[in-house]
Amino acid sequence: MMLEIEMVGHSYAGHTALQDVNLEVAGGELLSIVGPSGCGKSTLLRCIAGLIRPAQGRVVLNGAQIDDVPDNLAVVFQDYSRSLLPWLSVRDNVALPLRRRGKPKAERRAAAEAALATVGLSGADGMYPWQLSGGMQQRVSIARALAYRPALLLMDEPFGSVDAQTREDLEDLILQVRGDGMTILLVTHDIDESVYVGDRVAVLSRAPGTVIADLQVDLPAKRDQITTRELPEFVHLRAEVGRLVRGGAPASQAS
């Protein structure tokens, strides 16, 4: 197993966000983590990223416990407008993390431009993030992560702030760029999205969040927004995930 999450728990000022979370992720897998709002999904992701240290349990990556941010890890955050640096051009934003890799400047630029081309933003190299639409900014943010060539890519509600059409395009972009052995963890509250994008779906309960189901997604690897979503397996699975997510949140249903 590439990533092992063992009995992880965390709380903020008396509020228990996570409790006894156990998960295993194999190399090259795309795991969706879905759960109701406020179930600690983002906290779990930050623990895996090494940005916070869980109060209980541990996260093990390739056999080593995560204490600080591991190498070869990239994160795409929901808030693209804050996660991109407005004073750097799109190209420089993407190339910035490559500085540490000791590549010469020309190579960094080339790598950044290649990553931008992959996400469909070839012409935008010299522009600034705030000149782009929200969906395009999130593409830049994805390009920055891809150019870094991480072994593990974490995505925290990456499509939560874009419109429905853009969201579908970005979901397809993720399916298109995965491969090269990159392992992806995608946190979302969108049930359809978790099934559509994932190889596996882990369902978290309401806070304190814990894994209440771990479902295999038996859909063909090649997916598209129309036909995949009308497959009986898809419909069945999304219903099951939906029931689990709601079952974990009876109070929110009542309100």
């Binding site: 990223a49 190498d71 994160v75 955050f77 808030d79 910035l96 540490r100 870094y148």
Partner: peptide, 23 residues
């Protein structure tokens, strides 16, 4: 979030200072 980004992508102290904090 920008400081988190600098940690995730392991920016050097100088990069952190000159490309994030000072700007």
């Amino acid at each position: 979030l920008q400081m988190d980004i600098s940690r995730v992508f392991k920016l050097s102290a100088a990069d952190r200072l000159f490309t994030i904090i000072i700007p």
